[in-house]
């Protein structure tokens, strides 16, 4: 029985198959992360061991080369030698401002779209849906030439504004559906009491909108943090964020035989995402389903 609150568990062939499927999926989903996390503390000879994959578990070469079964060489190389910390700082700046600005202007717009009954509100939502579908790289090819001309290419503020704009269609849709769930009577009765539209928004809506805003913020965070197309094309080498930095690591480190730097950088970039799921699992799930359940 699906969805029933009280239910006795029975072993039938069907449950065995579906449990096996879930178990298989969990292994496929988790193993790559565990393997890479473990391997990032080994030397290249162990993580990429042609002779025997068990080397990665025991760390045969790691013990021979460094004396211990675990080594921080990869992290040292990435963070200090290749100055990955600079990219981390850049990512922090870009992501922080993108999320804050996206939510500020997205909340205003989403609220207006949820409360307007006019036809143009529908058209704006439709345009946003089309914009949401556009591959980001197609937009990037439109930015480059003007940005070079105006001399604003390569700096962080440009990238932040572009990411905010690319974020807007999604943010608008999500916040719009959250605001639809807040009863109209609340702000309308405030307006009957003499508030202006903005005062009603400020004193009645803002205090109750936080669950929706936090959820939307998480997805804005993911979009800005995970972006590669925009950040790799619009940032100069010294302003690079983490993701394009990892991709340029690959070019340089493979030549020098320092793949482990890239492995360590990849694990470092995954850690914040891991924490995000750990603390905000419920919000992420509700966000994924919010748009869907609305239809």
């Amino acid at each position: 029985m699906l969805g029933a609150p009280t239910r006795r568990f029975r072993w039938t062939p069907l449950t065995v198959i579906s449990m096996a499927l879930v178990a298989l999926w969990l292994i496929i989903a988790a193993f790559p992360f565990l393997w890479t996390l473990w391997g990032s503390f080994k030397v290249q000879g162990d993580f990429f061991s042609k002779a025997d994959w068990m080397n990665a578990l025991h760390g045969v070469h790691t013990i021979r080369e460094t004396g211990g079964a675990f080594t921080l060489d990869g992290y040292h190389g990435a963070w200090i030698q290749e100055e990955f910390w600079k990219n981390v700082v850049n990512t922090t700046i870009v992501v922080f401002f993108t999320v804050v600005i996206s939510l500020t202007i997205g909340t205003l717009g989403g609220y207006a779209l949820a409360r307007s009954v006019h036809r143009y509100a529908f058209w704006i939502l439709m345009a946003a849906l089309v914009f949401r579908a556009m591959p980001h790289i197609t937009l990037v090819s439109g930015y480059l030439l003007p940005f070079f001309e105006w001399n604003i290419w390569g700096i962080l503020p440009t990238t932040i504004i572009v990411l905010v704009a690319i974020n807007q269609p999604f943010t608008l849709w999500m916040l719009h559906s959250f605001f639809l769930n807040i009863p109209k009577d609340m702000d309308e009765s405030a307006m009957v009491d003499g508030c202006t539209r903005f005062q009603a928004f400020r004193h009645v809506i803002i205090p109750v909108m936080w669950p929706g805003v936090i959820t939307t913020g998480l997805f804005s965070f993911l979009l800005a943090y995970n972006d590669f197309a925009v950040t790799s094309m619009l940032l100069s080498a010294e302003n690079e964020t983490m993701v394009p930095a990892i991709s340029s690591f690959l070019g340089t480190t493979q030549v020098e035989g320092n793949v482990m730097f890239a492995v360590a950088a990849v694990v470092s970039a995954t850690a914040p995402l891991f924490m995000l799921v750990l603390f905000f699992q419920r919000h992420l799930v509700s966000g994924l389903t919010a748009g869907a359940v609305k239809g």
Binding site: G109, A112, S116, A127, A165, Q168
Partner: peptide, 17 residues
Amino acid sequence: SFFWFILPTLTAMLLFI
């Protein structure tokens, strides 16, 4: 009021998309 609420986000989308 719709115009003022939507203005920032609409400007961003028009200019950069």
